[in-house]
Design a protein around this nucleic acid. Structure first.
Lengths: 187, 187
DNA sequence: ACTCTATGATACAATAATGTCTCATAAATA
DNA sequence: TATTTATGAGACATTATTGTATCATAGAGT
């Protein structure tokens, strides 16, 4: 007993999937569109989510936690900072759509404390990884850590863009991002 | 005779400025907000622009043309591809807000043929510049030109982000972008 | 098979934004 | 100064979206 009705979880998941897909393309997508795309009545959306804002915040949290979940095992392998960074790119690239989705709805998501908390946690961990790379001598100490964090974000975005617009594979996209991150585009 | 009333051009420019500033922060900004921020009545906005879509398209075109205008003199200097690229970064970075604005309203702007035409023109020129860099031996021939275009876009974004979020100067931001573009982050 | 419970469809109120129109007024032009 | 012209304020209709509520029904759980 006390377990969820199967219809509930199905509807909820369909709505979350549809939400990411539509809001990614158009941050102003309406709840009617999202419900329709999930093959679910609009009323059901309101049974699962209090409001549009809450739906978006749940989507943001889901996206962030998926990223965390994929990165966690990499951290446990105790690799060098550079190798860790490479593995993070490989792991994150397949869900770059979730990642980019976050950017597109950030002005709404950033109002939520839980979202901010998870996000800051991830930023902090990335920053300390970069610091470690500097100590290990694989990352240029003259570059601000905040700059490198920013560039990493951007290169993940680049990879995602190539996947979506030129059909590049996730593996290829992460390889490109890693190479460019460490070596730039020089011959 | 047949010259514009001074009030007209003032209102129009105030509306364009306010439009970029507000839509950059929030792509869903309303026309009331934009008019208010321009210290102009909402009716005046409708006298200058047919609709919200048209306002956004004019803003997009203005932003694109400002970029073109800043890049044009650089091209005439007949520098090496690498040096040209460096100068383009320096020239474009101060108006990176316009550039980022374009991204944030792209799903609306891309519906306009004129916008697309200017944009494609710029992309094409950038691509041929990169090809030239490959021939001159300063850019890695193994990397797809489309990838490099994408990375350049991303690094301009990185520079813009640092300017807005950490108070980095435009000169510093372009220097960082250029260094990272060509050399990556390695020590 | 029987009982709940989630669902879709639909109607509904509330709100907010877009777009049109008018009119007195203030500011530019000549 | 006289005349034209853009303006701000506001009323107004229209439309779209959000959010709530109801109800018969289909499909879960047992």
């Amino acid at each position: 007993m006390s377990t969820q009705d199967a219809r509930s979880v199905r509807s909820r998941q369909a709505l979350l999937d549809a939400g990411i897909e539509l809001l990614l393309r158009n941050p102003a997508a309406t709840l009617s569109e999202i419900a329709a795309h999930a093959n679910v009545g609009r009323a059901t959306l309101y049974r699962q989510f209090e409001s549009k804002e809450q739906l978006i915040q749940e989507l943001a949290i889901e996206s962030l936690e998926m990223t965390s979940a994929v990165i966690a095992p990499v951290k446990n392998r105790k690799l060098s900072a550079k190798a860790t960074l490479e593995e993070i790119f490989k792991a994150v690239m397949p869900l770059a759509d979730k990642y980019h989705f976050l950017l597109s709805i950030w002005n709404i998501a950033e109002k939520d404390d839980e979202v901010i908390a998870i996000y800051n946690q991830q930023l902090t961990e990335l920053a300390s990884l970069i610091e470690r790379g500097k100590k290990e001598g694989t990352i240029n100490k003259n570059l601000d850590t905040s700059w490198i964090v920013c560039v990493i974000d951007s290169l993940i975005y680049s990879g995602w863009w190539m996947m979506g617009n030129t059909g590049m594979s996730a593996a290829n996209a992460s390889a490109h991002s890693i190479e460019t991150l460490f070596a730039g585009i020089s011959k």
